[in-house]
Structure formats: structure tokens, C-alpha cells
Amino acid sequence: MTHIVTRLCLRDTACVDVCPVECMVLGKPEEEWPWLYIDPDTCIDCGACVPECPYEAIFPEEEVPFDYEAPAGVWIANTKELLPDGAAFEGDVDGHDVKLLNAKQLSGGEILDLTEDIPPNYDFFSEGPGYDALD
């Protein structure tokens, strides 16, 4: 198994710095790949990235919640297609400077199925359109 980064990711790269196998990649182009991704073939499932994420966006794959209840004020980021009511955002989130192309702040109580974020992680590292982002 690997770890999965979900739409709770606001592109902070603290997790990248602690990864012992350098398996975390910032999605590019951001409009198609809005958060960080973990290479499932390289990840050693050590979990070092989990406590470093200031947004609690990383989960072991088998623990990604299908019924995540968002607290008030949490931000999510995604593609315009999957988050049509999102907007560009630049500012401070929990003491971190954030600049996102498409994000939305939740009012709290929304239930998110974060398991929907598992396939994009694998798609990014397949021969699909995200593969070129590694170059």
C-alpha cells in the first residue's frame, strides 16, 4: 500500500522535505493536477509525510475516509471540473502562505468522500497526461 494525498492538500511542500525516498511530486500543470502526489511504486509506506502536512491531507490508502466531516474553515483544492464553484486564492491558511488556482473554503459539516482522490494519485504516475509533469 501507499499513502494518498487528498483534496485537502494546499500544495505545502513540508512533506516533500521529510520523504526518505523522494516519492512526492508537486502536480504540474496545477490546473490539471492541483495537489501533491505520491509515487505508489516508490513509496515505502513509512508515514513520515503524514505529521508534516499542516492540512492533514495525507492518509494511508486503506484509511482514506469516505465520510470525512470537514471542520469549519477547512480549504479544499481541485480542478475546475471537479470543483466548479472554486476560485483562485492567495493568502494565509493556518500560518502558511498559500497560492491556489482553484480552491474553496468550507463552512463546516460538509461530508467529503476523499476516496475519490485515490484514482488521480495513480493516474498522475501512469502514462496519462500527468506523466509529462515529471519532466
Rank of each mutant, 00 (worst) to 15 (best):
G47I: 06
A87M: 09
L134A: 00
P20I: 04
L10P: 04
P20F: 03
A133K: 07
P34G: 02
E31T: 05
G128E: 12
G95H: 07
P54I: 15
P120K: 00
E52R: 15
E31V: 05
P84Y: 10
I44P: 01
L134E: 04
V16S: 03
M1I: 03
I58N: 02
K28I: 11
A48L: 13
G128C: 09
P71H: 05
K80I: 15
D39C: 11
Q105I: 06
E90A: 08
E81M: 05
V50G: 00
C46M: 05
P29D: 07
E110M: 08
T13N: 10
Y37N: 05
N78R: 11
E61R: 08
D92I: 14
Y68I: 08
K99G: 10
A57S: 15
D17C: 03
R11Y: 07
I44T: 07
L114A: 09
W35G: 02
L82I: 02
E56C: 08
A57H: 09
E110P: 13
L100Q: 11
A77N: 13
D45G: 00
A48K: 06
I118F: 00
V74I: 12
D135N: 09
F66L: 02
C53W: 14
E110L: 03
G73P: 15
K99S: 15
T79I: 10
T115Q: 13
E62T: 09
G109Q: 02
K80W: 12
C9N: 03
L36F: 07
A14C: 10
P71C: 00
A14N: 09
L134Y: 01
I38L: 00
P29C: 08
C46L: 08
C9Y: 02
E81N: 03
F124G: 02
C46V: 03
C23F: 08
Y55M: 15
T2V: 05
D39M: 07
V18G: 10
P65E: 07
G108A: 03
E116A: 08
Y122V: 02
C19D: 04
C46D: 12
D17I: 06
D67C: 00
E116P: 00
V64T: 07
K80H: 14
D17M: 11
G108W: 02
D123I: 05
P129R: 07
N121P: 01
L100G: 06
D123W: 09
F89S: 05
C19P: 09
M1Y: 02
G86N: 14
I58T: 01
F59P: 12
F89Y: 14
S126T: 13
N78E: 15
I4L: 06
D117R: 01
D97N: 01
D12F: 05
L26K: 12
E62A: 12
Y122P: 04
L10T: 03
D97E: 14
D17Y: 10
A87T: 13
P71S: 13
I76D: 08
Y122L: 11
G95V: 12
D39Q: 04
L114S: 09
R7F: 10
D67I: 00
